[in-house]
Design a binder for these strands. Structure first.
Lengths: 212, 212
DNA sequence: TAATACAATATTGTCGACAATATAAAGACA
DNA sequence: TGTCTTTATATTGTCGACAATATTGTATTA
């Protein structure tokens, strides 16, 4: 199952958006992209449709495609939903988690600790994704996992930015550790508490990044 | 902002899937559709991409597009997430609801009552959508609303089927009424109770529709 | 007969050209 | 001068043809 060129292009543009090389509101013109990627417009159009599917860009008929723009409110709403989903996931995970799952989470935590020590934001972020995905995988609900990933994808640029801020990477690591501990003890309440703490911290970061 | 033909085609195929005229797993061949809709393949391809975006079909590279197939487990997972989101929405709505919102919900309930009396499933279903969308609109969280709609869309065929079953339309109406009453009293607990009751009923319907 | 290699067919992927539409620029009129 | 109309330009939408790929059917060989 080889990847079609449209998919490769979609991947490339996707990472550019994630890394902040393409900014919200920036226009994506088909002909320009076709020239850059040395193809015709057909695969470009298809790639853009795929990106719209992933909610990374917005398409307006006869007007074109722009990198999705979030209002301050939308970012807050996005975070809100993400953390509510994490709570749901945690609650479900408590009754399903195995010893092997816990070992896997410990492994990710260890790697995160190293990345945090090295101040390797990129690496830490990837492990972060892994951690949360693992957490939801434990629930066994693929719909939930899919939805969660769809939400986090557009949030990535903001998360990266706030991760680079102050000692957020360290406190993020600590919260994750608390979560795993709560999961080990099968304690829904302390798990939720850890999630809430992280949420508060995230919102504080947002306030610094996007002052009113 | 006129609708492009690709969008019209996507709408048409979308309703066919929703109404069960196209069955899960059924193949959607581009040339055949192009012939039927009297266009070239370009807008068809685009429409199919849009449907994939809405999670109504699955695309496999070089193999084609099929109407999305759900396993029994996925349907259960889908319902699970939908009801968890409704709970979240209700909790948020309690602190935001206005008198005008309540009147609007009453209006929808009245219409549902009529549709239920006439055993007009189609009409009842549309009002049902309206009810739930309104409920989430009250929260003011557009991300949540969008996500909720994305989940309900592929679930529509199942919901329609279970609505046609026994007196599910009537009990659905009653649960909605309870929800509005709970909202009026700003009671999170009784709202959640109503949602859970409806969830249980839904799962029972599913068990009848898809016996093990 | 069963398994494998090969050829034929159906279908998707990509291309370049043209048509339709929206935006920007230029002109007409009060 | 300012507003409306018209024209020009840029960009997206659609088309038909060809290329690439996957599947199916057929032949070959052990």
């Amino acid at each position: 199952m080889k990847k079609t060129t449209a998919m490769q292009i979609a991947d490339e543009i996707s990472t550019r958006i994630a890394k902040g090389q393409l900014h919200p509101g920036e226009r994506l013109v088909e002909t320009a992209l076709a020239k850059e990627f040395q193809t015709s417009r057909a695969p470009i159009r298809e790639a853009l449709l795929m990106l719209e599917r992933d909610r990374l860009v917005e398409r307006i008929p006869h007007q074109g495609v722009v990198v999705r723009r979030f209002t301050r409110q939308e970012i807050y709403d996005l975070y809100d939903v993400i953390y509510r989903l994490e709570e749901i996931a945690f609650e479900k995970a408590v009754s399903k988690v195995t010893e092997e799952d816990l070992r896997e989470l410990d492994r990710i935590l260890d790697d995160q600790k190293k990345a945090q020590r090295d101040q390797n934001i990129e690496s830490y972020y990837e492990l972060n994704e892994e951690f949360h995905n693992k957490m939801i995988e434990i629930t066994g609900n693929k719909i939930l996992l899919n939805m969660y990933q769809n939400l986090r994808r557009p949030a990535r640029p903001f998360r990266m930015m706030s991760m680079a801020q102050g000692n957020n990477m360290y406190s993020s690591y600590k919260e994750h550790k608390k979560q795993v501990e709560a999961l080990r003890q099968r304690s829904v309440s302390s798990g939720k508490r850890a999630i809430r703490e992280q949420e508060i911290r995230s919102l504080q970061s947002l306030d610094i990044l996007f002052p009113v």
